[in-house]
């Protein structure tokens, strides 16, 4: 295993009651790498992301973020989470706060920035996702795509070293998916390290450095998009990829040309 890996996951296990979700996941993510995780639903993709920022405690195994073992006992969970941005399927914007306040509350209350500093940085983060004109809107007044972009800005506001995306476009109407993917692609180009659970094959093919195919709690196969699409080692990988591409991939293929 390479020493420079930004994120190292080793032999991760997690079970709920007797049902084993993760059966030994080992994965390295390099700095600035964009990794897309795919696989049938219920195979533990989201559970793995939630283990990485310790929203879920793994039963067994280790995770290192920049040489610090975050699964060790007595680590400061809150400190670790500040360096890991998380974007959820259903946005989870704070309903009582405006778009700008959603972005600044972490800066103010966790990073202890002054109100002025937080405001400036908050506006800058909204600028990055193209929503400065929505700064004073409440979540209920935003479209799904806008909500997700605010959620991305909120995570970016904490200056994370890695960003986790848990099916960021699955709850969106088809016509709103593009704006979120565009923001994510821009982030990738800026060199953000990203771990993305998604079925957006267009994004996986165009933007990711590596696709990881998970099934039944294990990593079946991984590699650069071209390899997985055209020379997969396992028939199962090919089967899944093409099935998903048919279901989800059409629009992006057309739009990415």
């Amino acid at each position: 295993m390479s020493d420079q890996a930004l994120l190292r996951i080793e032999d991760l296990h997690k079970a709920y009651h007797t049902h084993e979700i993760l059966k030994g996941i080992t994965l390295d993510v390099q700095e600035k790498e964009v990794v897309v995780i795919i696989g049938p639903s219920g195979t533990g993709k989201s559970t793995m992301l939630r283990c990485i920022n310790l929203l879920t405690r793994p039963d067994q195994g280790h995770i290192w973020l920049e040489e610090i073992e975050i699964t060790a006992p007595h680590v400061n969970i809150d400190k670790i989470r500040q360096r890991i941005g998380m974007v959820f399927q259903d946005f989870n914007l704070f309903n009582h706060l405006t778009a700008l306040q959603n972005v600044t509350i972490g800066m103010a209350k966790v990073l202890k920035m002054s109100a002025k500093e937080a405001h400036e940085k908050g506006m800058w983060e909204l600028e990055r996702v193209g929503l400065v004109d929505r700064a004073d809107h409440y979540p209920a007044q935003l479209s799904g795509g806008q909500k997700q972009r605010v959620a991305i800005a909120r995570a970016l506001g904490m200056n994370p070293h890695v960003m986790l995306f848990d099916e960021p476009t699955s709850a969106l109407d088809p016509e709103l998916i593009g704006e979120v993917l565009t923001v994510m692609q821009k982030l990738a180009e800026e060199g953000m390290t990203m771990l993305v659970v998604s079925h957006e094959m267009g994004f996986a093919r165009e933007v990711s450095d590596r696709i990881v195919f998970m099934e039944n709690g294990v990593i079946v196969e991984q590699g650069p998009p071209k390899q997985l699409f055209y020379q997969p080692k396992f028939e199962r990988t090919r089967e899944f990829l093409w099935k998903i591409s048919e279901l989800y991939g059409k629009d992006e293929e057309e739009s990415s040309e």
């Binding site: 920022n53 929203l55 989470r81 998380m86 989870n92 309903n95 209350k109 966790v110 909120r154 904490m158």
Partner: peptide
């Protein structure tokens, strides 16, 4: 208050108490 609110607050690095104080209670 939807459960996702607490999860999102914790994911930002807020402690449990801060999440309650700034996110859960106001709602």
């Amino acid at each position: 208050v939807p459960q996702g609110q607490m999860i999102a607050a914790r994911a930002l690095g807020m402690s449990r108490w801060k999440s309650i104080r700034y996110i859960i209670l106001p709602q």
